[in-house]
Computed example of a mutant assay.
Amino acid sequence: METTRRAMMAGALMAATAATLPQPAGQSLGNVARRRGIAFGTAMSRRAVAQDPAYASLVASQSTIMVPENELKWYAIRPDPTTIDYSAADDLLDWAEENRLAIRGHNLLWQVERRIPEWQKSFDFGPDPKRTARQMMVEHIERTCRRYASRIQSWDVVNEAIDPADGSLRTTSFSKAFGDSGEMVDLAFHLAKENLPASTELVYNDFMNWEPSNEKHRAGVLRLLEGFRKRNVPVHALGIQGHLGGGGTTGNTSGVGGFGAHDERAWRDFLDAVTAMNYRLLITEFDVNDRFAVAPVAERDAQIAAYAKAFLDVSLSYPQLHSVLLWGMSDNHTWLRGSGSGPRADGLPKRPCPYDDRLQPKPLREALIDALAAAPLRS
Rank of each mutant, 00 (worst) to 15 (best):
R365W: 03
A367S: 03
I240S: 02
Q62I: 03
F123R: 08
T253A: 14
W327L: 03
S330C: 08
R100Q: 15
A96R: 04
S122E: 14
T3L: 13
T250S: 15
P363D: 06
D206K: 08
W119Q: 07
Y75M: 07
E299F: 03
G242V: 05
A298R: 00
F286Y: 14
N195H: 06
V185T: 08
R229A: 09
M8I: 15
M137Y: 09
R47T: 12
P234D: 08
Y307L: 05
L364N: 05
G126F: 09
S57C: 10
R231M: 04
K193L: 04
V185C: 10
G37N: 13
T17W: 00
T17D: 11
P117S: 10
G37K: 11
A48I: 03
I103H: 02
K193M: 00
N278H: 14
A375C: 06
D357K: 13
R34V: 05
D186H: 10
I369K: 01
A266C: 08
L326M: 11
Q153F: 04
T284C: 04
Q153N: 09
K230A: 14
G26Q: 09
L368C: 04
M8W: 15
P343N: 11
K350I: 06
A16V: 14
G257N: 08
P234N: 12
D356A: 11
F207P: 00
T132P: 05
N252F: 13
L191P: 01
D180I: 10
H236L: 05
P68M: 04
L364R: 02
R146A: 08
F178I: 10
G258H: 04
A177E: 09
W95R: 05
D272F: 08
G126S: 14
P234I: 06
A305L: 03
E98P: 12
A39F: 03
A295W: 04
I103C: 09
G220K: 07
A192H: 04
D80E: 05
Q320R: 13
Y204D: 00
F207L: 01
M277A: 07
E299S: 08
E183W: 13
H217W: 10
D94W: 09
V203R: 01
S175T: 07
I304D: 06
R36S: 06
E142K: 12
R265G: 02
G255V: 05
I38L: 05
G347L: 00
R115Q: 13
A219I: 10
R229S: 05
M14H: 14
Y86G: 04
R47H: 12
L271H: 10
C145W: 02
H140C: 06
G260C: 06
Q111Y: 10
R78N: 02
N70P: 06
W327H: 02
L321C: 11
T82N: 13
A161K: 06
A12Y: 15
L326G: 01
S168K: 06
